[in-house]
Design a protein around this nucleic acid. Structure first.
Lengths: 232, 232
DNA sequence: AAAATCAATTGATATATGTCAACCCGTCAG
DNA sequence: CTGACGGGTTGACATATATCAATTGATTTT
């Protein structure tokens, strides 16, 4: 692993405070691999052998049941996924596939658990990370249960806009079919939802979105920090 | 606080392994109170001043947005809630109200965070607890996104049946209107869903449910451990 | 360039779910 | 006893969302 990657991983909240020895030892056991797009990295139900870190590219976390599939989240550099399964030594609840060519570090789960037992700072960082993950899913759950698909899209656009810097025009960072799945609707319905937001000043061309009437859209979307803020 | 309660709380996974001194110190700062039914204990958005422990009774965790309300979970003795907010020192994402007369212990959040910093066993227990909570919400999310309301009800009944000991007949432990909210549907729709399960051998009288054709119902519900098992 | 592919869109239609109003039936207070 | 209340149910209807089939448009392959 190049030094720059090593340092980038070290900077993650999860690893920043742990003892040098322990971090080095974790990394010594790690594999780093380049994967092409559309490779299934893990399959739900399997034992959690590795903690994964996305170094570059992006990864889709999804789940299936009875022939249906839904996208649960997208992981972008640099962050980890499958932490809860690793810590609990329990089966993966979600599958993961690369969305594009991606570079992934794999840390054996038993190493993570061993260092977790030995390094208190690491253990604390894991608590913070898990609490963050937990709260994110709760927010997503509220989004799903309290809003219609049109409202979910409107709020997603506002979040994405802010994430992109706040300008009136920005790019979707999803393929639309996957955005639909993340938002809990069909691609057809997403197309119609975009049209449904036209009266509020939303226009779309390809992946480029432009919000022409910020106030109108916000009045409709009613964004709420307890659902839409990433940080809290 | 009576000794028996003290010991029951001590037995919780969250507190079982921590040092005696630290547990005692946590409990010394705790308030224990009896609340009548339908009291709002906490309101989403407020700072998380206390970690709550339900000693007896039951508590509904719910959220609201734009005049709508949805039930997120029910907490039954003996367990804690609002752990993630306490640890992150972040606002509550959910509100909580008593469903019946309930006895609740309140531990000041800053005490929890202080002991969390001082007691490694406690910190580890928190990790396990949070990982568990996180995985529960993920399962619930999968349930919501991958299943229709009829399928959610069918699987809920199977879970509840197992929880009640596995016999063909058992009691719902929810008021139906709240069950509807937990399952993400309206009370009217729940009524119809129960009827929709009659062909699979489900009959309901009041809160008593009887599953007359286990195999048929399971064939329809297709329960899956990665969604429906509590433990994993 | 022609053909093949695939995401995105559109229209027609079906299904799922929500809403509203009415009613039933227990419980409880007067 | 009686009337008010509240949860649950039912029917009629409205809306939201999914499904299916066809088309478009862009991109890649041959």
């Amino acid at each position: 692993m190049p030094d720059s990657e090593y340092r980038d991983i070290r900077k993650l909240d999860l690893f920043a405070q742990m003892a040098d020895d322990n971090f080095t030892s974790l990394m010594r056991g790690a594999y780093v691999q380049n994967f092409p797009a559309q490779i299934e990295l893990i399959t739900e139900g399997e034992p959690s052998d590795f903690l994964h870190i996305v170094i570059s590219g992006s990864v889709d976390l999804f789940s299936t049941w009875n022939g249906r599939e839904t996208s649960m989240a997208t992981v972008r550099p640099i962050s980890t996924f499958i932490l809860a399964a690793t810590i609990k030594d329990a089966p993966y609840l979600m599958s993961a596939r690369t969305l594009e060519k991606s570079r992934i570090a794999l840390i054996p789960s038993q190493d993570v658990r061993a260092i977790f037992d030995a390094d208190n700072n690491f253990a604390r960082a894991i608590v913070t990370e898990l609490a963050q993950c937990y709260r994110s899913v709760i927010k997503s759950q509220k989004d799903l249960k309290l809003r219609t698909s049109l409202e979910r899209l409107a709020n997603y656009l506002l979040r994405q806009q802010r994430h992109a810097g706040g300008g009136a025009a920005f790019e979707l960072d999803f393929e639309k079919r996957r955005l639909a799945s993340v938002l809990g609707m069909t691609p057809e319905n997403l197309s119609r939802a975009f049209k449904g937001l036209q009266p509020y000043g939303v226009s779309v061309t390809g992946t480029r979105v432009s919000i022409d009437n910020q106030a109108d859209l916000e009045r409709f979307a009613k964004p709420n920090p307890l659902i839409d803020d990433f940080s809290t």
